[in-house]
Amino acid sequence: MSLTKTKIRSFFGEKRLYAVAGASNNPSKFGYKILNWYIKHNIPVIPINPKESVILDQPVIHNVSSVIQAIENHKKLGNYNTAEVDGLSISFLTPPHVTVATLKEIGEIEGYKNVIKGLWFQPGSYDQDVLDLAKKLGEYDKVIEEDECILVRGEEGLLSANL
């Protein structure tokens, strides 16, 4: 099995929670399409956007760090059951400089390595600085990139994870 296929399979999990960093209310944007993909597959997902309050009828959380801390502390986060999950997989749809800022924020949270199970950098959300920071944080083995899109490869990941 290729390394990318292995990473895609491990991105998904039966007790996993997912976040879409860069979720959008604009149906023409991938932040909307990918959030909708999770919802249509009945996958527990949290939209992350600092400026919105609801996207696709889902309450929005303003930053990823709130989700990670809730999971780490086994606490509920608003309407989201973050207490009973095995970790968080994040789809990034933000510009590279925002992805870097989010990764730096994650790196400041004690216990983030226990919570983060996958980082899917959608096309356009990463550059070499993003990949270098993921390596520095010790998370590169959980990164899916190389122009891989969850809309194309997500079904394969769900099947290989038996979900």
Rank of each mutant, 00 (worst) to 15 (best):
Q58W: 08
E52Q: 15
I90G: 08
H97N: 15
A83D: 13
Q69E: 15
T82A: 10
V98S: 12
K117V: 11
T102N: 08
V85M: 00
Y18H: 01
V85P: 03
P59H: 12
G118Y: 03
N114Y: 06
N81V: 01
A23H: 08
I71S: 00
D127E: 09
S91L: 08
K40D: 14
V85F: 01
P27K: 04
V100F: 02
S125W: 08
G22V: 06
I68E: 01
V115W: 00
I106C: 09
N79Y: 13
G78Y: 05
Q58A: 13
H62G: 14
E72M: 14
V98L: 13
I71P: 03
V64Q: 05
L56G: 08
K51N: 15
N81S: 11
N73R: 15
I61Y: 03
K33L: 12
H74I: 10
G87K: 03
K104A: 10
I106K: 04
N26C: 08
I116L: 03
Y126L: 12
G78F: 08
T102F: 07
Q69C: 13
I39S: 06
N81Q: 14
P96K: 05
I116F: 06
G111T: 11
K29V: 09
H41W: 06
V130D: 08
V60W: 01
G118T: 06
N63Y: 02
W37E: 09
L17I: 11
G87A: 04
P59G: 11
S89H: 01
N25F: 06
F30P: 04
E105M: 08
P47C: 07
